[in-house]
């Protein structure tokens, strides 16, 4: 049962990561590309972490996974606007 849950969640997460990468490659300008990348990656990684949680040997390991997801979300949410502003200053 947990194996099915893990499989579904990780597959869905990979789908979001692939969609985010497609957006990064195909969208027309920096703002939309960053939007696709940070949002889809945050969600994709979150789904992968969620799927892996039942496979962890203990609560400490599960909390570490969640901490990684939180840190990546924090980094994405900070870097996205910074890069967007840099890009708009470069090409007004």
């Amino acid at each position: 049962m947990t194996a099915v849950f893990t499989g579904v969640c990780v597959a869905a997460g990979l789908l979001f990561l692939a969609a985010g990468t497609a957006g990064l490659l195909r969208f027309p300008d920096a703002a939309t590309r960053l939007h696709a990348l940070t949002k889809a990656d945050g969600l994709g990684l979150g789904l992968i972490v969620l799927g892996l949680l039942p496979q962890m040997p203990g609560v400490a390991a599960a909390l570490k996974l969640l901490a990684i997801w939180g840190l990546v979300l924090l980094a994405g949410a900070t870097i996205g606007p910074l890069l967007a502003r840099h890009a708009t200053e470069r090409e007004p």
């Binding site: 840190l71 924090l74 949410a77 910074l82």
Partner: peptide, 13 residues
């Protein structure tokens, strides 16, 4: 904006 917020949240971790 976001950088001062990150600079307050991240260093303790």
């Amino acid at each position: 904006g976001p950088l001062p917020l990150l600079a307050r949240v991240l260093p303790p971790i």
